[in-house]
Computed example of a mutant assay.
Amino acid sequence: MLIIIGAILGFIAVVGVGFALTAATPGQAKTTKRVQAIARAPTNREVRARAARAAANTPDARRKAIVKTLKDQEKQAKKAQLTLSNKLLQAGLTMTPGFYYGICAGLGVTVMLLVVVLRQPIWAAPVLGAAIGVGLPRWIVNFLANGRIKKFTSAFSDAMDIIVRGIKSGLPVHDCLKIIGRETPQPLAGEFQRLMESIGMGMSFDQALEKMYDRMPTPELRFFSIVMNVQQKTGGNLAEALGNLSTVLRARKLMREKIKALSSEATASAMIIGCLPPGVVVLISVTQPGYMFPMFHDPRGQLMMLGGVTWMSMGIFVMRRMINFKF
């Protein structure tokens, strides 16, 4: 009996020593698991995820992302140009669309009353009232908007240079944008100040750029937003990207000035041809009123005037389309 008990105790002792010698520490267990995870074959999901990450960093994928962003921005620009509220913002006006329509209506009614008081043909009152009431305010808004956009575009490349120099000197991007809002001329400074105010109110950088693009729908600002979006998603040297963008913007500005110089002769010819008939009518009306009297009061003369204005308008429109270069 003692021999059997001793054999059992010896067996238990040998087994315990074996477990003690072969048991792994917690650190060794983690190392073993890591080695097993590396050595095992990856699953299909992991393979697809790695392939997707690798494909996203290729030049073709970046090019597709930029093209998609350009198309989205182009659609957004078309929507921004069609809405009256955005047009008023582009012109730098703080009035509401309702107040603008009130001005148009008041101006149209004033012109109609003036035509009636001057005892002009009755059909001229609604025509002139509608033309001046609708056309004149819209022309003024478009003139102001185009002027602000032109000033913004001419100074935008300098803003890119400020950001590039600030990043190279160690400043954050937000501090560079604040410097642009303080040091650059209007309307560039005001737009970047509104951009920083939007970011300070909790809006994301992408959303703030979209609001800024609604106020200034220019290709230069669209390029800037694309560069910032691509840099946030894929990383890279932002100073180098914005430096290249500044070079492209200056090249576009040089091309624009070159096109303007080459088309200046056609523009002057179109202006002379468009202004010559009305100028002759005004000159003859002042020097020889009796000679032009039947043209304004005789029904046949009025019909001829209507036809002449129609054909002149069509000619001016065609000439404008011929000398208006888009690039």
Results as ranks from 00 to 15, higher is better:
215 R>S: 12
269 S>G: 11
248 V>P: 02
296 F>V: 09
209 L>G: 04
265 E>D: 12
273 I>N: 09
272 I>A: 09
275 C>F: 15
288 Q>F: 15
267 T>H: 08
217 P>V: 00
249 L>Q: 02
306 L>K: 12
242 L>Y: 01
289 P>C: 05
302 Q>C: 07
302 Q>M: 14
277 P>R: 05
253 K>D: 10
250 R>E: 08
298 D>Q: 06
277 P>Q: 02
264 S>F: 03
304 M>K: 12
228 M>A: 07
279 G>S: 11
259 I>G: 00
274 G>S: 13
256 R>S: 12
303 L>D: 12
212 M>W: 00
291 Y>V: 14
264 S>K: 07
220 E>G: 02
226 I>Q: 08
304 M>S: 10
213 Y>T: 07
220 E>Q: 09
232 Q>K: 15
280 V>A: 10
213 Y>S: 14
224 F>V: 01
262 L>F: 02
208 A>C: 00
212 M>T: 10
277 P>S: 04
297 H>Q: 09
293 F>Q: 11
233 K>P: 02
284 I>C: 04
221 L>Q: 09
235 G>H: 01
224 F>C: 00
258 K>W: 07
222 R>D: 07
241 A>N: 06
224 F>E: 02
237 N>Q: 01
236 G>D: 03
211 K>F: 12
246 S>K: 00
266 A>T: 03
242 L>R: 01
276 L>T: 14
230 V>M: 11
229 N>T: 13
207 Q>V: 06
253 K>V: 00
305 M>D: 11
215 R>M: 12
269 S>F: 08
235 G>T: 03
292 M>W: 06
286 V>P: 12
